[in-house]
Nucleic acid binder design. Structure first.
Length: 543
DNA sequence: CGGCCAATACTG
DNA sequence: CAGTAT
DNA sequence: GCCG
């Protein structure tokens, strides 16, 4: 690749591009995956191109040591190879010094004698052990590992939060609260791993890292594919697109060629091809095809009805239905689907924050009426401070730890009497009286007092001792939830909305033996702390 | 090729 | 049990 | 879809 354009090739805070022009091949053997992904990202951000195979284009080959190198690449090829063959340490040092350091000290030599090689590989091994002590914590105590992970998370989260803040500046006043808070934290975290950011921060104290819209052309199209594939029931595929969007959003430059994203996590052959097509043609034929295909369009539409999923949507299509109006004459619809259909437009309409707040208050008063002391909060995007919400997620408990039982049915009855709840979708008649320690749930539609517009509402009643888990779960967002779950997993626990359980891993236990009871925590913070996850205020959980 | 976003609860 | 939703 |  010809490194010709040395001017401001990107609108990013990335005048450095310290790896600009180099083309790398990575020997992944022996590298901790997480670290590898970070390196790839850095390389790409700093202008390098990642090759999947060792070719003439490659100017730098990286390996953790000679053994891994030879294990993955033909010795024969290597002897013919003309570029640098280096230890990853070169990468680390270059990143921390903010410039490409001399390759001399990091060269991996093949042409040594056998015994020399043995010696060297030993040396390298030791080197790497030193290295790994401050980047690969696995050998040492668990605690350290989690700590480092947490640090990484912090960095990522803050960046993501910034992303959101930028893109949602339009309609969210809360997110602007994020901005003043982020730079300091972010710059502090960034100082450690990547020194060059420090300079950037000094020069641009206001915005340490600003990856706004660039590549929106790509993420928008991928966003549509997510919905289409989900409607078609191809969840896995849909999720692949879902995962790759944040990766692309983090890039500080506008993608002009698929080479620039090659090797990034979640980006394989297909993604590259799609990206290439989008940056050259401005559109994606695959998406165009989907959007014109009547079957895909119809199934997608039907799938937007509450209670209709991919399977039902397809059946209905095959029965000949093409519009929502047609569907109303179908007998096989369930009660929920009929309600979902009838109030299709209502349900899709977002709810202004103010109305949610009013309804939360209404619910709290109604609850207090029939059960003094009952604790009722609206979770979901409302609790995260969003200016509008898709629905109401109401999380309920009672401080005394027992009078929550049987509350839900009384509450629902009451709310129906006052004409707040209007239609049922799902009613868990779980613990009317006594079946203890389970979560009662109600899904339905409600209205703002004096109006007819239907709003989706979920009510969930938790026993006090697992309330914190429910609150965390229903406050979200899903990205944060997933990280918490992952973190819990890595520490040998299983986390969900009903508790934190010691991993009953593969051994024996089927379903009957739900034996392990959840650890008890009174507050969200205690859960975060226990997991070693940094505390996020609800409004900071819009990752 | 098979796993991956986990796990659970209601409906009919 | 399959399908659907959270 | 991607990844191992």
């Amino acid at each position: 690749m010809a490194p010709k354009k040395s001017k401001n090739r990107t609108p990013s805070p990335d005048p450095n591009g310290i790896f600009s022009g180099i083309s790398v091949y990575l020997v992944e053997k022996g590298v901790q995956n997480r670290r590898l992904q970070v390196w790839k990202q850095k390389l790409v951000q700093m202008g390098a191109t990642i090759e999947e195979r060792l070719s003439k284009k490659v100017s730098h080959v990286f390996a953790v040591d000679l053994n891994s190198l030879l294990q993955q690449v033909d010795r024969e090829r290597l002897t013919r190879y003309k570029g640098f063959i280096l230890l990853y340490q070169w990468l680390v040092d270059s990143l921390s010094s903010g410039e490409k350091v001399s390759e001399d000290l990091y060269l991996l030599n093949l042409d040594s004698e056998e015994d020399n090689i043995a010696d060297k590989s030993l040396d390298w091994k030791q080197e790497n052990e030193n290295v790994s002590s401050d980047c690969e914590p696995l050998h040492h105590k668990r605690i350290k590992s989690s700590h480092e992970d947490v640090e990484s998370f912090k960095v990522e989260s803050k960046r993501d939060a910034d992303n959101n803040a930028v893109s949602e500046t339009l309609n969210s006043s809360i997110s602007s609260d994020n901005l003043p808070d982020s730079p300091s934290t972010a710059s502090m975290s960034l100082d450690t791993p990547g020194g060059q950011f420090k300079d950037v921060n000094v020069l641009q104290p206001s915005l340490p890292y600003s990856p706004p819209d660039l590549n929106k052309n790509i993420t928008e199209i991928f966003g549509k594919l997510i919905n289409i594939y989900r409607a078609l029931g191809e969840d896995r595929r849909s999720f692949s697109y879902y995962k790759v969007i944040p990766v692309i959003e983090k890039l500080p430059f506008k993608i002009e060629s698929a080479d620039q994203v090659k090797g990034l996590p979640g980006i394989g052959k297909s993604m590259q091809d799609h990206i290439q097509e989008i940056v050259t043609n401005g559109n994606l034929s695959k998406l165009e095809h989907f959007e014109t295909d009547e079957k895909v369009r119809t199934i997608s539409l039907f799938g937007e009805v509450w209670g209709i999923g991919p399977a039902t949507a397809q059946k209905l299509y095959e029965k000949g239905y093409r519009t929502l109006d047609d569907l109303k004459s179908e007998d096989s619809l369930t009660h929920s689907q009929r309600v979902g259909l009838k109030y299709f437009d209502d349900i899709k309409t977002r709810i202004p924050r103010q109305e949610v707040q009013d309804m939360e208050l209404l619910l709290q008063k109604a609850g207090e009426d029939i059960l003094p002391g009952v604790d009722i909060v609206c979770g979901g995007s409302f609790r995260r401070g969003k200016s509008s919400c898709g629905d109401l997620d109401i999380v309920i408990t009672h401080p005394d730890g027992k009078s929550h039982k049987g509350f839900l049915s009384r509450f629902v009855k009451r709310l129906k009497d006052m004409n707040f709840l209007r239609e049922d979708l799902i009613f868990s008649t779980h613990s009317e009286e006594d079946s203890d320690s389970c979560v009662d749930t109600y899904f339905g539609l409600c209205t703002y007092p004096g109006r007819e517009l239907r709003r989706r509402i979920d009510l969930k009643v938790y026993p006090r001792d697992i309330y914190a888990f429910g609150l965390i779960h229903w406050t979200g967002n899903d990205v944060l939830n997933r990280r918490l779950r992952l973190l819990a997993d890595s520490k040998g626990y299983r986390l969900d909305d009903t508790g934190l359980f010691p991993a009953t891993h593969g051994s024996g236990g089927k379903k009957g033996a739900k034996a392990s009871t959840s650890l008890k925590f009174g507050t969200e913070k205690e859960v975060f702390d226990f997991l070693g996850f940094p505390w996020f205020e609800p409004h900071e959980r819009n990752l």
